[in-house]
């Protein structure tokens, strides 16, 4: 038997070996690039900088977190960021659900394919192009002329992340057999009742899956708010300014842990809904 064949035979017999070979590259990426950098972030958050030379001082201190909690402006910015992320999520949900429902349940198979492509198309365009397009639209002499600010930020973020809400809900509704909707109607339920008692509870995990995207993407964004946010600041800007202008990497790291913690809390809360099995 040739070496090639015996290797293939060995792999065939040892399923676990085959699996680990397949997964080694992605696992290495996840372990080193992602978890490693996250760990570095946490460690850095407990360091400080020499206020005179600006050099890193690698000594453990709670100072960064103390500042974060005690200085009002950071709390305001953090709450504002959560509020913006929540608003974007709600707006996206309100737009995405009917859209996804129409795609999954009402459109013909042909139309369905086209609609999926249409929903995906904006994702092929550059983030910056889309953000600047909104800047032009919203500028006081633009087509809409609503001006910049937090409202403009919410609007632009809602636009940017909408596909991430539509697609999971679409996938969730697509899996929902039509016969369940027919059964509800057959048993006497009208549209709203069918929605409330059958569609929504069964699509809820998919909704939560979508909200994880819109919420986390909004929570970490700092570019859109720079482009259309006027003077408003979000948590991402605080991180960015501390890395750049203030040259305080440890404090930036401490601020960056806030969205991580918020997301962890959010994920823990939604884990119960079974949404994570729907991603």
């Amino acid at each position: 038997m040739s070496l090639k064949r015996s290797a293939a035979a060995t792999l065939h017999r040892h399923g676990r070996l085959r699996l680990s070979l397949l997964l080694s590259a992605p696992l290495a990426w996840l372990g080193i690039a992602y978890l490693g950098s996250l760990a570095a972030l946490f460690v850095t958050a407990f360091w400080t900088t020499d206020s005179f030379t600006g050099d890193l001082v690698k000594a453990f201190t709670w100072d960064n977190f103390r500042d974060l909690v005690t200085i009002d402006v950071y709390r305001t910015v953090a709450l504002r960021s959560v509020w913006v992320a929540a608003a974007v999520t709600v707006i996206d949900l309100i737009i995405a659900f009917p859209m996804a429902f129409a795609m999954a349940k009402l459109a013909s198979p042909r139309a369905q394919r086209w609609l999926v492509i249409l929903v995906l198309t904006p994702l092929w365009a550059s983030y910056l192009v889309k953000a600047y397009a909104w800047r032009v639209l919203l500028s006081s002499d633009g087509l809409l002329g609503w001006g910049y600010g937090l409202g403009a930020t919410v609007l632009t973020l809602s636009y940017l992340w909408l596909p991430y809400m539509i697609l999971p809900i679409y996938a969730g509704l697509e899996r929902l057999p039509d016969s369940l909707l027919e059964a509800a109607g057959d048993l006497g339920a009208r549209g709203w009742r069918t929605f409330r008692t059958v569609v929504w509870p069964l699509a809820f995990p998919a909704v939560v899956a979508g909200s994880i995207f819109t919420f986390s993407l909004s929570l970490g964004d700092y570019i859109t708010v720079k482009i259309v946010g006027g003077k408003s600041q979000l948590i991402g800007n605080v991180v960015y300014d501390n890395i750049g202008a203030a040259n305080n990497l440890p404090f930036a790291a401490a601020v960056a842990t806030v969205p991580v913690i918020v997301m962890l809390l959010y994920l823990t809360a939604v884990r119960r809904t079974g949404a994570l099995e729907n991603l």
Binding site: P177, S179, L180, E182, A183, A184, G185, D186, L187, G188, A189, R190, T197, V198, P201, L202
Partner: peptide
């Protein structure tokens, strides 16, 4: 008339029981 306005009920091929 819509299904909910008709005095009939259906046993579906896949049963269509509400899983939740």
């Amino acid at each position: 008339l819509a299904p909910f306005e008709r005095d009939v009920n259906t046993v579906f091929q896949d049963y269509a029981l509400f899983p939740h």
